[in-house]
Design a protein around this nucleic acid. Structure first.
Lengths: 212, 212, 212, 212
DNA sequence: CATGAATGAGACTTCATTCAT
DNA sequence: TATGAATGAAGTCTCATTCAT
């Protein structure tokens, strides 16, 4: 359907060149539709972005909720599962993640930022709650919860948003995102699980000597 | 000086509204200079961005180099120092970091991206080398170096770029960046040092049980 | 019927916002019909205006003709009757009068202007002929016929077209047109009859001393 | 100067084709300026209209005020002078009068309508006050003041706004406005003075017999 | 008879830049 | 060095209309 085509092309181009850097002409052209269609379908460029958010918003909620509903599983396995799922999601929807990250880092207030923050909060609250649960069960030690969450998301974001940079850092040639994703997905999962769980479980002796 | 005023206003506005979202009129107006001055001084809007990069590029090299030149210090203290310095730097130059992050996440190739990547690489290579050095000295265990670097930078980036989001996650009201910086700077340093060093020096028994 | 609904809504909106200022979308929306219906029924926006003219054109001819066909009545009573009828008509069909006035004052030639002028001429000729008849019968004195006609129509037009203005001039709050009409209808009739008949009948002594 | 040129062309075209019916392209083209100049100078099409109002607003105040400042003159001569001046003004600035009339007859509220009403009120209040003064001095009889004012303005408006119509009514060929103005200016003045002053000073016997 | 989808044209406005001074 | 005026290109959006169903 043409409406979906426009949404997908918009996602592509917003990710490539940014929201402001993309013109509706560009979108119409690549989507092979008349330029007036965008206003016709979505009302305006901004509403197109909103529609894109709605279109992609669901990509996260369903699955993470399922995970959250296994109340008997121990927090360690929950955390591992969350990391697996989260890495998969962001790498799969890297374009949308890209767009969201840029909009969220805008300092100026916009009504659209709210929607994006709501989506992000929904996800990160899940991680937060797993850590809290683990602490309550004395399985996880006391850590800075919000910043631990930031480290998980931040790591995935870095890798996702700066493909060309990490290609260079790893001394591999620039490749397209799918290949890149294939190459690093498991590395990221392994690294994150190792680092975060060590962080959450390590006994106090070791950690105390390294903090100032 | 007027040229500097323009650069500083440009940094402000690019951070607020993005490069494409900022017009040279906006800059000229807030900098209280004639519109024609920007083309006159810098040649074009794009060259203004380049000039801004040059203007801010030095913020990192000086200090990190000093650190690198203490070859006798042990890697643990080096890493702690690097984290301290890096957190300070990014939080201090959050606007520039903001701009760079957005440009780097653009998928399309631009000659300006190169310059930014070079600056970023310069910094991250320092961290990378410290880890390598620690491993060579058998002080650090075997970890995924690039992703450990990504975790450090990613954590700081997250916190820096998504102020409003983390305010909400921490249940504090939205505050200006200076207050925010004051509040979280030490938390970030402490968290990162704890997490990263635990990750780098944890003994194998503990970490092995948590990896899949 | 839908066709009539469209015509009535069109009249409303053309009066409110002008012909050019009204879009067929506006009309379709308020008339609760599909946009395509307007082109479908009337062919084009311009033809819709023409259709509106046809639809409303009859509002004047019928009744004034009746009046004209009482050849025995004396011109004074005819004039009074004409004023009564004319005031009633214009105030009742104020929206259509509004549209016509605006179109007629367009300087550029349009084929639609012709139709409107024909309608207007039809009415004013009646008034003109009554004055001529009165003069021929030596009941009316010599006056500038066309301008006397202009004064009659001009007075009614003023009051009709500038409701908000005359509300203000009379120090009454802005009211809807029906209330306004109720309030001034008789005043206008009385004023016009008094002024016009004095003008037509006054003896020369009085009028001569006031002309330059 | 180009700014004035634009204003004059805008007046021409707004009078010819209406505000909504005129595109900024039309104006730019006829004024022989770049299309962007209109936004550059005036900000927007609407602000151009406002600027036009400001530009032409003064055409009335100066002279009528002078007239008002002869407190010793008798109301009859004042009224004659006002009619002379007013006819001159409207015929001279017929294009602006045209634009104002159309905007004022818009039913929908607009911030620009306010400005126009203020200008119109300023003029009509002068006439109103002369009548009131004449009545106070027992020179004018009791008449409907507001509607007398409406008759004066309405007569001039009719003649000004419907040139082609009155050409036809008078059986003369359509001529340009300057010729038309020449032909009818004195007729209008004479007619109005005669009619209005008869109306204002006629003795009661005559007027009473003609009012219902 | 009726309509939702689609379209090309053109609306207004803002853009970064240049030019003459 | 500095600037106000000016510009062509491009921006987003709305317009009246048509077409396939």
């Amino acid at each position: 359907m043409k409406k979906e085509k426009i949404l997908e092309v918009a996602e592509e181009l917003f990710a490539e060149k940014g929201y402001e850097g993309t013109s509706v002409r560009d979108i119409a052209q690549r989507a092979e539709v008349n330029i007036a269609m965008i206003s016709y379908y979505f009302g305006s460029k901004e509403k197109l972005l909103e529609a894109l958010i709605q279109y992609r918003a669901g990509y996260t909620s369903n699955l993470l909720d399922i995970l959250k509903k296994n109340p008997n599983e121990d927090p360690i396995h929950k955390m591992e599962k969350v990391i697996d799922v989260y890495v998969d999601r962001i790498l799969t929807h890297h374009r949308f993640h890209n767009i969201m990250s840029r909009q969220l880092s805008m300092l100026s207030e916009a009504h659209i930022k709210e929607q994006m923050m709501a989506i992000k909060k929904q996800n990160l609250d899940i991680i937060k709650k797993i850590i809290e649960e683990g602490q309550k069960k004395k399985i996880f030690r006391k850590v800075d919860i919000e910043l631990t969450v930031a480290s998980i998301v931040g790591t995935i974001s870095q890798v996702t948003l700066s493909k060309s940079f990490y290609c260079r850092l790893m001394n591999i040639p620039e490749i397209n995102f799918d290949e890149y994703s294939l190459r690093i997905k498991n590395r990221v999962k392994k690294h994150l699980k190792k680092m975060i769980l060590t962080h959450l479980i390590a006994d106090m002796n070791q950690s105390s000597k390294s903090t100032s």
